[in-house]
Design a protein around this nucleic acid. Sequence first.
DNA 1: TCCCTTGCGTTCGATTTTCGAACTCAGCTA
DNA 2: TAGCTGAGTTCGAAAATCGAACGCAAGGGA
Lengths: 148, 148
Amino acid sequence: MPYSSFASMPCTLSRPAALLGERWTLLLLRQIFLGTRRFEDFQATMDISRSVLTDRLNVLLQENVLKRVPYHEDGRTRHEYRLTEKGRDLYPVLMALRTWGEKWMAPEEEESFHLHHRDCGGGVRAKVECTECAAELTARDVQVTAKQ
Amino acid sequence: MPYSSFASMPCTLSRPAALLGERWTLLLLRQIFLGTRRFEDFQATMDISRSVLTDRLNVLLQENVLKRVPYHEDGRTRHEYRLTEKGRDLYPVLMALRTWGEKWMAPEEEESFHLHHRDCGGGVRAKVECTECAAELTARDVQVTAKQ
DNA sequence: TCCCTTGCGTTCGATTTTCGAACTCAGCTA
DNA sequence: TAGCTGAGTTCGAAAATCGAACGCAAGGGA
């Protein structure tokens, strides 16, 4: 079973994991959420090779995580990469990574960006919760049952 | 800048992203959360090559996401791989992936596992919330400011 | 004692991915 | 006309991954 075939496994976790578990994809999404939209800017800020950048952008376009949007500059039409609704919905994944990174991989100095809620100025964190009782859940609170 | 150097960037998102954005690592963690603990079982369920499996397990051991725990079977001592507290804390990341996968990549048939809260039987989902007002947040509700 | 099995790796040559540098191409601009 | 710029494409070299075979230590059975 090659790595890519996880993309077709009947598991709601393994397919996203196969997509985002490709080299550069998570870092690319991080840049996009930070506002980067153009090929040259991805190349400059991440220093990814151009061919791999092309490939990753195309995969995300195909998966409908990104869309190409035309814009005008200096009188000519170009395209930029923007998140679709599906792409914007990946925000909790990135925030879960950040929340984890802050707790467990933070260096001595503090983080380089501050995130806060526009309305109230509070901090931001990812969590898992029960859809019924709204309790915060850890792996131990969750029972896994194979579907019959 | 090679891919691996993101591991040392002063960003609480890019370091975890560089770690989990390595091929197989997310899928390996998925198996571990599902209860797989032994080398042979990882090999059998994921069909990853043995050398890469060795490498990924070692990276996760080094990062202190996993620990080796001795156990006895047939009178001899062996080791299994278990999550540390740091590793268990990755649960929200995996659940965020799953929540996204369910919404956006679910095939016609339903998922192969059911997850539910042990105490009340409710469903499980990942979300991002404000640490002050507890509102659920999307990317648009969050302001990013560079730390000065 | 000798041989077989098991679990857990390591080694190695072949195949895939990724890398970096150069090249292409279209549409301005001087 | 020549040059510049954004957005790729191409291609040979380097790195990562693959599958299959090998190693090895600790039982168990004959």
